[in-house]
Write a protein that binds this DNA or RNA. Structure first.
Lengths: 198, 198
DNA sequence: GTCGTAGCCTAACGAACGTTAGGTAGGAGA
DNA sequence: TCTCCTACCTAACGTTCGTTAGGCTACGAC
């Protein structure tokens, strides 16, 4: 979307996230990342202070992408929509963020535990906050009678894990476009929370 | 369930699957596994031929557990149930397998890609076959009019990723029992595929 | 032309990795 | 008592890991 300065640093993060997605962070060496850029491992350290630093940059960027997109999807200025429509919008947005950069999203979803100390806790806190958005929306919808009453935490986790799973299997050249997937997932999510809604 | 001979080999697999679940296969060293058993890394090789061999044993056992349970859930002798009931039974069974040994299930779901060559392909084939069971059931249910018509592959993937996610967060001492989780997930799954079903 | 700087190189560091070799202690069965 | 066998040990192997140090080249700005 946004036009980025074509920095070397960013190129490193891009190949790293592709490798982290398909092999995992721990199974990807610094020399693997360098080889994908056709340079030597040591040369990376002109652009990067550590391997974990690259992971952190990727995870941080992904977290912001999800947060910003969710805020845009939910805080629409045009008055309060009902829970069903807001849930559909949130699901669509989540799918769109994943499809826009599946490597980024996959690393965020699956590799955050290789961060250490404060960074790990910071990301966990942001994940929790994001999950709370889902849970809150589900809770509101139940209170308003839009959703079937059930355990909001379970329902939110059910939806979020299903959504995050997309980051693992989505391929841009696949059978279904991101929009079609978003349509299907929004329908499935809404129906999962709705009963006799005609 | 079954009473096992208390073999050292099995103890190794148990601590290994716990470590693989929480740190990942690649980030767990042979010496880490040994330390959890209060022995030296080299001593493991009296019971095991390689680190990957341990992963294979875990993944293989998990695959069999899922396959056997699904077969028992679907091939009930008491005549053909409708797709809704069979889906609910399959979901419950899947949850039960995960809850019976979350470490085993989590390694199966998340760490199979660290297998090499034939083993990796063999597990992928079995995963595909298992997924095909879900997809087939969804397809049948749509044909019979029990389920809302949608893309069966997308719906099956949606459900399976939501289900497999449980392996990542379930804790036996958690707020909800495995049965309660199974109830909720079966409801969510059936509703996701059903519309105006009263 | 010279200066800065961006980008890469070779060489090497200590640590950790998976794994092998060969040996020891102790209990079970003859 | 001798003999296996299970379970563990120490020591070491070659490799790979993340990372640092120091140097070279090309190019744009002044």
């Amino acid at each position: 979307m946004a036009i980025e300065a074509p920095s070397r640093r960013r190129a490193i993060e891009d190949v790293a996230s592709a490798l982290f997605r398909e092999r995992g962070y721990a199974a990807t060496s610094v020399r693997d990342i360098a080889r994908a850029l056709d340079i030597r491992g040591a040369s990376l350290y002109a652009h990067v202070t550590s391997k974990e630093d690259v992971l952190w940059a990727i995870v941080e960027r992904a977290a912001s992408a999800f947060e910003d997109a969710a805020a845009r999807a939910l805080d629409t200025g045009d008055g309060p929509a009902d829970a069903t429509n807001r849930l559909a919008a949130l699901v669509r947005t989540h799918v769109a963020v994943i499809a826009a950069d599946p490597e980024l999203a996959s690393v965020f979803v699956n590799e955050w535990r290789h961060l250490s100390g404060e960074r790990r806790e910071a990301i966990l806190a942001r994940r929790d906050a994001y999950e709370a958005r889902f849970r809150g929306l589900v809770t509101e919808g139940m209170a308003a009678g839009d959703f079937t009453s059930t355990d909001p935490a379970v329902a939110a986790t059910f939806l979020l894990t299903a959504l995050n799973g997309i980051a693992g299997w989505y391929r841009p050249e696949g059978r279904l476009s991101a929009n079609r997937i978003a349509d299907h997932y929004a329908d499935l999510a809404v129906r999962a929370l709705t009963e006799d809604h005609r």
